[in-house]
Structure formats: C-alpha cells, structure tokens
Amino acid sequence: MSEEIKLMKGNEAIAHAAIRYGADGYFGYPITPQSEIMETLMDEAPWNTTGMVVLQAESEVAAINMVYGGAGCGKRVMTSSSSPGISLKLEGISYIAGAELPCLIVNVMRGGPGLGTIQPSQADYFQTVKGGGHGDYRLITLAPSSVQEMADFVALGFDLAFKYRNPAMILADGIVGQMMEKVVLPPAQLRKTEAEIIEECPWATLGKPKSRERNVITSLELDPAKMEENNIRFQKKYKAIEEAEVRYEEFMCDDADYLLIAFGSSARICQKVVEMAREEGLKVGLFRPITLWPFPSKVLNEYGDKVKGMLSVELNAGQMVEDVRLAVNGKVKVEHFGRLGGIVFTPDEILEALKNKLL
C-alpha cells in the first residue's frame, strides 16, 4: 500500500495506521467511543493481507494480558479502550511496565467517574500520567489533537515503546476519536520477521537456542535489594525519556502576555480563542503539550518569566493544571477552566474565563 489521502474518523485512522505500520496484533473489547478501532480492523481483515492478528477478547482484562504475551515475544501488539475499560486494564499495564515490555495502548476518553457517559472528556489525565496502576512506573503519553495525529502517533508510539522497552499510550478524547478529517495514511511497512525480532529484541521469548541463556520476562522479584535495583534502573530510563522525548506545539506565543495551556480537542478550541482575543487587543498564545508524559515542564518554566498568567483549559475538574503549576513554580498565576460530564466548552466561555481569572 502506498501513501493515501482519505476522509475518516480518528478511530478509523488508528486502525488503518496500525495495519500500515506492520503491527502484529490487536486485542481489544468494544466500548464507546472507541469501538470503531476494532470494527475497522475487522472490516479490513488484515490477517488476509499482512498476517496481523485481530481478536475481540472476552474482557478488557483478557485483552491486556494477551498484549502482555505478544509483547513478551517482541511482537508489535496493541489494544484500545475507553476510560472504564482502561481502568480494568491497569493491573496488566503495570505488569507490562514492570516487565519492561513495549506495546501501544489507545484510550479514547469518555466522561466519568464510574460508567459516566459516552460523551468526550479529558478526565483520565491523572490516571495516565501519574501511573494509574500500582508501583512507580510511567507511560509514554501522546495526546493527538487531529485525525492526522491519531494516525501519525501509532508509528511514533510503537517506535518510542520499542526504543525504551516501555508501554506507550495514545491519550485521545471522544471528540478526536469521532470527528472526521482528511488524513494522509503512510506507506505500508512489512511486519518484522522472526529473524529481525531476534536481532532487534534479544530479550524476546521466541524459543531458546543453545547459544544463549534462557530469556525470563517477569515483573516479580522477591529479593527487595534486587527489586530496588530494578526500580532504580526504571527511574534512570524515565529520566532519559524526560530529557529526550518532550514534544509540544506553540501558537502565537512569541509576544503573548497570557498563555492558554491545552491538549487534545481543547487545544483546537483554544486556537479560536487566541484569534478572538487578539482581535480584542489581548496578546494571548496557546501552548499545547503533545507529550503529556514526559511533560514539557522546562519550557513552561521559561514562559513563567515572560508572561503574566496562564489558564489551563481542560475537559475535567482540573488535572493538568497541577503539572503546569509545578512547572512554573509560582512565577506567575496559573488558573484552570473546564467543563464536566461530557459538556464541551465554547470559545466564548474560555475567553470569558480568561478575562475573569487572569485580567
């Protein structure tokens, strides 16, 4: 398959990009608003073309443990779900992180807590970037704001996961998952051969030849001294990721007196707010974190010396705002504006909040 331009939903773009990336397997369970990912994969039937396995598991718990098994073999495997389903996967995600295995997880967020609603939300920020499951682990977290990025972040997520032997997550909201836009799909790549996996992933459990010791993949270590060594190694890896993999986007920030901080669909809405504010003579810019972890703290800290205030705009009760405040370390006033329960704010509401909270 060569490069193609198509009109599709964000969820559909995830599925097509996974096939074209050469993913080996997808294991999932349906839940709104992400079900089109698995539906599209089933419609495309990649097992007949690339050999990719697509399986609806009996539950979210089963799906994430299938990912664990596939990742342990060095395969490029993934899963997707929406907020309550991700909660069910958290034990498995912690096990995968503890075993230092690469995989891709997609969360198309909906409103909560509990079963909540099927409308969009960004209330899984804490769950994703602060761990979610048990133990001191981190998820490389990419936050797309367009259908194009939904497609692009599949390859990026897999590449980062394998580079650092760490699970990566695409954290989208229901708006980005469901909206339709033009997307450029990349040329298709071949799936990795067994020989390539053995060469690139010497840790993988693909059968033990006589020439090496057996590979053991586990997150279990009953010796506390060795477990501490493992955790120290994990923290060094996380530090390396924080130094090398921060991604963000700036929109009219050069001369800004005030910054809107937003990710995902909220950032799309905030672009309009910036334009509206500029028309009124207010120098407002937009800073969009693309990696929610690692978070662009150093860059925001530098903006703390340049601007008069920041407004964190999120579809939640105030989560990313805590990381923004930690980043600027008291240099400027940082406020939050959000809507809850699946309600999406308007540009007018955000602009009014900016004026009320910062001016």
Rank of each mutant, 00 (worst) to 15 (best):
S2T: 15
M8P: 05
N11Y: 12
A17W: 03
D24A: 01
Y29C: 05
Q34G: 10
S35F: 08
M38D: 06
E39Y: 13
E44D: 15
A45F: 15
V53Y: 03
V54A: 11
V61K: 13
A62L: 06
A63V: 09
I64T: 12
I64M: 04
M66H: 08
M66S: 12
G70K: 02
R76P: 05
T79Q: 04
S82Y: 09
S83Y: 06
G92N: 07
I93P: 01
C103A: 04
I105L: 09
V106L: 01
N107W: 01
G116M: 06
G116F: 00
T117P: 05
Q119L: 15
Q127R: 04
Q127A: 00
L139H: 04
A143F: 03
S145I: 09
V147T: 03
E149L: 10
L156P: 00
L160G: 06
F162H: 08
K163D: 06
K163R: 14
A168N: 00
M169L: 10
I175W: 10
P186M: 09
P186G: 07
P186W: 07
E196Y: 05
I197E: 07
L206E: 04
K208N: 14
K210V: 13
K210Q: 14
I217V: 12
R247I: 03
M252S: 13
C253A: 10
D254R: 07
I261Y: 02
I261C: 06
R268S: 15
E275L: 09
M276H: 13
R278D: 07
G285D: 04
S297C: 09
G304F: 01
M310F: 06
L311W: 07
V313K: 02
E322C: 04
D323F: 05
R325M: 12
V328E: 08
V334T: 03
E335F: 07
H336G: 06
R339W: 15
L340M: 15
G342K: 06
V344E: 10
P347Y: 07
I350S: 03
L351F: 10
L354D: 04
